[in-house]
């Protein structure tokens, strides 16, 4: 197996890793680093359960090679809270029941984070468009949208 030495910042921590040339980012996270909060669900790039942030942008970690994030910064669901203190988006999802089984939740929250970092005051429609790319068979969409909008308010200090 061809490997390459990579330097990646993951959740604020610097990693030097020897990674297989065809290793997907999601497999590096889940299998090598045991960061299993990032989920796999569809095998076809269509569910977004595996969403993480690469340099602040939401990315499907199942559709990108680990090689491609060399020298870049990756944020996963495990890196969102500040110690025991939940991020306002996480708090809002807890309070507003923006989740049921919780399997799609890490990906949804990471997409919400990317959205709110870029646009602190999204309209309901903008939130709905981002969230609608995610598969949630528990149908928590109405409460997910509410959770994101309320988190946006809190993050704006309103």
């Amino acid at each position: 197996m061809i490997t390459k030495d990579l330097s990646i910042t993951i959740n604020g921590k610097q990693y030097r890793l020897s990674v297989g040339a065809r290793t997907l980012l999601v497999d590096l996270l889940r299998n090598d680093l045991e960061l299993t909060g990032t989920k796999v669900a569809c095998d076809s790039g269509s569910c977004l359960a595996c969403t993480v942030l690469v340099d602040g942008k939401a990315v499907k970690s199942c559709s990108i090679l680990a090689l491609q994030v060399d020298g870049r910064s990756v944020l996963t669901i495990e890196g969102l809270a500040n110690g025991d203190k939940l991020h306002p988006i996480q708090e809002s999802f807890v309070k507003n029941h923006g989740l049921a089984c919780g399997y799609c939740t890490p990906g949804v929250i990471m997409s919400a984070k990317a959205l709110l970092d870029e646009n602190p005051s999204p309209t309901e429609d903008e939130v709905r468009h981002v969230i609608s790319d995610h598969l949630c068979r528990c149908g928590a969409y109405p409460k997910i949208v509410k959770s994101v909008l309320e988190a946006a308010e809190i993050m704006r200090g309103e």
Binding site: L35, V40, I77, L80, F93, G102, Y103
Partner: peptide, 23 residues
Amino acid sequence: KRVALEDAYEKVTGKLKFAVDIS
């Protein structure tokens, strides 16, 4: 009452383990 899910913390932090996460 609209009590928050007992396992909501684990779910929003990615700590909840499903069988696929077990090794």
